[in-house]
Amino acid sequence: MASSQILILASYVIIEAIRTRFFWVMIILLLIGMGSTLFIGSITLIETQAIQSSWLAAFLRLAAVYIVSLFVITSMVREFHEHSIYLWLSLPMRRSTYLLGKLSGFMMVALLTAILYGVSLLKYVSWEVVSIWTFSLGCELFIVSAASLLCVLTFPQTIQAFSMVLGFYVLSRSITAMQLMIQGPLWQNVYNWTDFIVNQLVDLLARFLPPLSQFTESEWLVYATGNLENLWIIIVQTAIYVTLLVAMSLFDWYRKNL
């Protein structure tokens, strides 16, 4: 019963994505990315393919994160504003089923986005490397979808929720670089109590955030360094973090007085 309800809710999310022209935006962003890649190819002296593939991959990754998170947030905000959420909850359906159904739909949309963007890279890179990159992008988008859902449940306004997701994404992507910075010789030489607090804070953040800089690396495309070992780490990290985000969302969702 619950699984069929989840499937129905997920299918409604995909229908919503089609009706709100989500996939058109995705294709337009893809065309912009490919156009800029052609331009970049015309100004390079060597390593043209490497530069083109890394640029397109970085552009598409950011574009995917942008549209998927905005889609999740606007879809949920619309549910709240149009009160359709009350209609769903008036049916014999548990709150967790509703949340998991919506999240499954968002993840399907994220997967479709990752596959389409991955396929566009086949022009520059071999399919083996692209498969690893696409899989990793899918995992990254799963985390972003779950984080967006949590943020929109906590802050049911588009601007607040999107700002939170943006902050989460930027921090998760740069936390490894921040850790490297505080371990550098400059920090080791001048070490006082404020440095200690900052150090501990960064360390604490690093424990709470997924190290997204290890996901969807351009290096895999440029130097073909991606392998199954990278994927295992990403799969385990995604499973743990998505579960954590879902648990946090459920906690918030069950406490919501609707």
Partner: peptide, 8 residues
């Protein structure tokens, strides 16, 4: 500033 993607 590279958000973890130094190659790009």
């Amino acid at each position: 500033l590279s958000l973890g993607d130094t190659i790009v």
